[in-house]
Design a protein around this nucleic acid. Structure first.
Length: 679
RNA sequence: GGCUGGGUAGCUCAGCUGGUUAGAGCGAACGACUCAUAAUCGUUAGGUCGUGGGUUCAAGUCCCACUCCAGCCA
């Protein structure tokens, strides 16, 4: 059985989590889940990087010990995961004793094998940038990055002899042993490796940096970020003697499951490192050479993700263009955010982030296509099939289009079934292929073609019609539609896990999410109960940006119909404009004159679920309080509140104004209760 | 400055080893339907495939130059 060990970078705790962290982790989570669907044994680890100067300084600034400082920040990162429905097997922190022990053992081994050397080194040091510069790097004698003063500093440090592994690394990449996706990133690394590879400085004197892991062979130094951070990938799965510590720290059940050869060999090198393109060199050059020096295989696979842009520039605090996309999870829910992140961005490329884009993805993919499909299908079951999965009648074959949907599903699941390609599905790949290539956006698009095909089937088979004349025919369509939904939901589980599980229940499936190999069309048990429920994905409307260039108002459509006179509407509004109005039936509970006003009446109006609203209306000359109390009126409830005569008005009473200036309240006919929407 | 990749319909992009009228999604327009969350289904979109040369019976698809953009490195 093949294995898949997914990692994210361990995130540096010098700030709060942002969309970049969330994205990379979400992709890794979804990829791990997809591999689980493929029947592979998977392990997924993320965590935090907690040493270094910036952390040390931040803690000093707050006047608290660094450990306390990082404990708090690590929690911010760890706490984000469940909010995004991300479920790693492990969360690792570099300040944990088990990890420090691994780092010490690894460094000692390299020292013993003469792969680490002490060298003295001199250069212009910039405190602000935390690094040395050469003479020609300097700009006007100052740090080229920060523009701050630099000082000439001479110090001895320890160097990892990385240069010795240049050729083995090139070979590993070119032979495909170390696979970097997307491919252009591999070229980038190879380009970097055309130049001579230098040795890597891996230490800092304690005088400059105390918050780090001490070198086992020189207590005057701590190790700098590389060995400290990158080795977490090995610690997490029990390398360098961490098995016992892991089991003790994580608990037996939570530690990586041991295979026949022990935990570390179980997972290494079946790893896929997910990372942003900004840390490609450290992961694809420093890290594999470190592993080679330690006698280990280089990582098998990398997935390099792009950046989310705002208005085509990188999101950055200094640019002030950060609207904290993460907060959108609170507005629209984690599943919608996950869907947007996974579906909108081609893995490896940059993409633009916008709330409008997220809303659009939600509305078109999730609400219109998927959610509505579930809704319309189960509605038929409730109306005509006693809320049970219909029984398939004998001797009735599915329609050709329905058959193609069935074939499409099994094709996605990996069977070599031919199916008819249509205009909207010209190219579809088996899930296994696109997941292997980590083109998850394509995987999701392909699965959605199944959803679209099912909508086509309903339009063409018309079960809502045939159910009246030929119930067996309707039963065939509805049964298979439910089955198609069940399989689509199963396949979508890696992206939208909670929703997928909810959909499975909705179609009467109780066996949960299955691996692809166990998905068989027709397993949905006839007669199982189909529960009722509300819509899965609400549609959202987003106000158009104020400054957006408004398209020229279109001339009103001319209604062409025989016998209907043509009219021209100069000030026509679209349905969307109308839909902005929240008109409700209200029941007047209290009505009284407003002091010092001969026009205004103050009312308290019950508008059902919206509660009691205070409404002021200028009708005192036309109506008495007695004519209003206890009666029903129409209220516009989402008009911006306004103060009149010192009193807030939280709604507008709808009135007809006659030519002679009388005001007549609009009274709802019938018995619609308070709060009913008027449309 | 060096290296790499890219400039294809309003937007986002597919177009493998050169070969019938250059494709999809979104948006837009029009039509159909009414089971459903005003949703769904269908039809339509004529874009000098960055610019200029070249190879070829034939180039978005190969070669050269130029230009613009992005990334990596220094």
């Amino acid at each position: 059985m093949s294995r898949f060990y997914a990692t994210t970078p361990i995130y540096y705790v010098n700030g709060k989590p942002h969309i970049g962290h969330a994205y990379c982790t979400t992709v890794a989570d979804a990829a791990a889940r997809f591999h689980r669907l493929l029947g592979e044994q998977t392990y997924f680890c993320t965590g935090t990087d907690e040493h270094g100067q910036k952390v040390q300084e931040a803690a000093e600034k707050r006047g608290i010990p660094p450990q306390q400082h990082v404990d708090e920040l690590a929690e911010a990162f760890r706490g984000l995961l469940p909010k995004l429905h991300i479920t790693p097997e492990q969360f690792i922190r570099t300040t944990e004793p088990r990890h420090k022990a691994v780092v010490a053992r690894a460094l000692q081994q390299l020292w013993d094998n003469d792969l680490i050397e002490k060298r003295s080194f001199a250069g212009w040091y910039s405190t602000a940038a935390e690094r040395f510069w050469t003479e020609k790097d300097l700009v006007d004698g100052k740090c080229p990055d920060t523009g701050q003063e630099v000082v000439w500093l001479e110090e001895a440090n320890y160097f990892f002899l990385m240069s010795r592994f240049q050729q083995p690394l090139i070979d590993a990449i070119e032979s495909g042993k170390m696979r970097i996706l997307p491919a252009n990133r591999a070229n980038e690394v190879l380009g970097f490796l055309r130049e001579p590879l230098l040795d890597l400085c891996i230490s800092r004197p304690k005088s400059r940096l105390s918050w780090g892991i001490e070198l086992p062979f020189d207590s005057e130094y701590v190790t700098y970020v590389w060995f400290d951070a990158l080795l977490n990938y090995v610690t997490a799965i029990g390398g360098f003697g961490a098995e016992a510590d892991n089991a003790a720290t994580l608990g037996e059940g939570a530690a990586p499951a041991s295979g026949d050869k022990g935990t570390f060999e179980t997972w290494w090198p079946h790893v896929c490192h997910f990372l942003g393109k900004d840390i490609l060199t450290t992961h694809a050059v420093y890290w594999p050479t470190m592993l080679m020096a330690l006698g280990l295989e280089p990582p098998r696979q990398y997935c390099v993700t792009g950046w989310w842009l705002m208005d085509n520039t990188k999101m950055s605090k200094s640019l002030g263009n950060v609207v904290d996309p993460l907060s959108l999870k609170d507005t629209y829910g984690p599943e919608v955010l996950r869907w947007f992140l996974l579906r909108e961005m081609a893995v490896g490329q940059d993409a633009n982030f916008s709330e409008a884009g997220l809303v659009k993805r939600n509305n078109t993919d999730l609400a219109n296509d998927l959610g509505n499909l579930v809704q319309r299908t189960t509605a038929l079951v409730h109306k005509h099939f006693d809320s049970q999965v219909p029984t398939l009648p004998e001797d009735r074959d599915p329609s050709p289009l329905l058959t193609s949907a069935i074939h499409l599903a099994s094709y996605l699941c990996g069977e070599d079934t031919p199916f008819e390609l249509t205009r909207s599905a010209q190219q579809v790949w088996p899930v296994e292929k696109t997941v292997d290539e980590l083109k998850l956006h394509v995987t999701l698009a392909d699965i959605m073609t199944l959803v679209q095909r099912l909508n086509q089937v309903l339009a063409s088979d018309q079960p809502f019609k045939t159910v009246k004349t030929d119930k067996d025919a309707a039963a065939v369509t509805v049964y298979h539609a439910l089955e198609g939904i069940r399989i689509a939901a199963n396949l979508l589980w890696p992206a939208i896990p909670h929703t997928a599980e909810a959909i499975l229940e909705r179609v009467g499936w109780t066996r949960g999410v299955l691996p692809l190999a166990d998905i068989n069309w027709g397993d949905l048990p006839e007669g199982s109960a189909v529960p009722k429920g509300a819509g899965l994905f609400p549609r959202y409307k987003l106000d158009a940006p104020k400054d957006a260039a408004k398209p020229a108002p279109k001339p009103a459509k001319k209604a062409k119909q025989k016998g209907l006179p043509e009219i021209t509407i100069d000030n026509a509004i679209g349905y969307d404009d109308f839909a902005k109005l929240d008109l409700r039936v209200g029941v007047v509970k209290v009505a009284e004159p407003v002091r010092k006003s001969d026009k205004l009446l103050r009312m308290e109006v019950d508008v059902g679920e919206l509660g009691l609203r205070q409404v002021l209306a200028g009708v005192a000359k036309h109506l008495t309080p007695e004519q209003l109390v206890g009666t029903r009126i129409q209220v516009l409830t989402n008009l911006a509140p306004r103060k009149l005569m010192g009193l807030w008005s939280q709604g507008m009473m709808m009135l007809a104004e006659t030519d002679d200036g009388r005001l007549v309240p609009m009274r709802p006919d019938g018995d619609a209760p308070a709060g009913s929407k008027i449309a």
